[in-house]
């Protein structure tokens, strides 16, 4: 993927006598668009949400990657960053939010709580021990709470993942190539 990353646009210029022809693969195009336009849902339950806000601020500035269009309605979001503990009462709501999002949709589990329950793993009666019990997760970020850079890294990792998808059929994996 190193080549496509450097490229401004996922296309190649074929030189001809009077100019050139731009050739591109549909898959590359789609993946390029999808990976560069991840609009997160405004969703934060606890401490990690503050670090998510920090990622949006001027110092970390996730708008550089085009992530700043945070949508309040799941209908227009591509990505749900589960920032904070999910408890039993919240789990159905989260599931519902995920269902309300249109495809393609991605999930980032931010923080220890969403990975396993984190600090609230032992002796708690109301915490969901890992958000992947409720919705499928694409990228996990450890930390309690993770630093904003970690969130940016996760989002860039997600971009990498999206670049391996195919519009029709299965994902481009190492074996399937």
């Amino acid at each position: 993927m190193a080549e496509t990353e450097k490229m401004i646009f996922p296309a190649q210029l074929h030189q001809t006598a009077d100019g050139g022809i731009v050739v591109s693969k549909l898959d590359d195009m789609i993946n390029w668009a999808r990976s560069n336009s991840l609009w997160p849902l405004v969703f934060g339950t606890s401490c990690c949400a503050i670090e998510m806000m920090s990622a949006a601020d001027a110092k970390y500035d996730w708008s550089r990657f085009g992530f700043e269009v945070a949508r309040a309605t799941p209908r227009q979001a591509d990505l749900i960053i589960v920032a904070g503990t999910i408890v039993m009462k919240m789990a159905p709501v989260l599931k519902r939010l995920y269902d309300q999002m249109p495809d393609p949709k991605y999930v980032i589990a931010m923080g220890a709580c969403t990975i396993s329950g984190g600090p609230f793993f032992y002796n708690t009666y109301s915490v969901v021990k890992g958000v992947d019990h409720v919705i499928p997760v694409d990228v996990y970020i450890p930390g309690c709470p993770p630093r904003p850079e970690a969130l940016l890294h996760a989002m860039i990792t997600l971009q990498e993942k999206i670049k391996h998808e195919t519009y029709f059929g299965k994902a481009k994996t190492e074996e399937g190539k």
């Binding site: 401004i8 646009f9 999808r34």
Partner: peptide
């Protein structure tokens, strides 16, 4: 006091193109 889009295309100018293509292909 931020930078704004600057990764997608020169100075982020293709950001909206990416957004548009994505929106068109979204369910």
């Amino acid at each position: 006091i931020r930078l704004g889009p600057n990764r997608v295309g020169p100075k982020g100018s293709l950001q909206i193109v990416a957004d548009t293509i994505k929106l068109l292909l979204k369910e």
